[in-house]
Design a binder for these strands. Structure first.
Length: 119
DNA sequence: TTGCTGACTTGGC
DNA sequence: AGCCAAGCCAGCA
């Protein structure tokens, strides 16, 4: 059964540590560019303390967390990402240009990015 | 069965 | 710069 959430989890599991992925990118990777909302819905069903699933590596298109006020500490997701090396600016957004990840990078490689150009 | 909601995104004003 | 409306779709009342 390749239920939707299974594929979502599988993809999220593939996100390397220290990298993030937007809901839209996850949806697009699954072949459904407009399913970003559903991704979020599935994530909402995922326990915030699930250590098996790096749900915190999934963020919104603005490079920020959308779980504010939804997790035990409002900024839990942000903290987890910071713990992995992702740096957030004062606005609570990270540079997708630097930390954004997509499946193709894992398949082929070479996705070295410059740390200098934030935004 | 219908109808609304939602951890979203994008475009227009 | 921020706010509003439309679009897609699974899950739930």
């Amino acid at each position: 059964m390749d239920s939707y959430h299974e594929r979502v989890y599988a993809l999220v599991l593939r996100i390397p540590r220290g990298r993030v992925m937007t809901y839209g990118s996850v949806a697009a990777a699954l072949g459904a560019p407009y399913d970003a909302r559903k991704i979020g819905n599935i994530m909402s069903l995922t326990p915030s303390d699930s250590r098996s699933i790096p749900w915190h590596r999934v963020i919104n298109a603005q490079g920020g967390i959308s779980t504010t006020g939804r997790t035990s500490p409002p900024d839990l997701q942000l903290r987890l990402l910071e713990a992995e090396g992702v740096v957030f600016n004062e606005k609570g957004c990270c540079s997708l240009r630097v930390y954004g990840w997509m499946p193709s990078e894992g398949a082929d490689a070479g996705g070295e990015r410059k740390q200098g150009d934030l935004f």
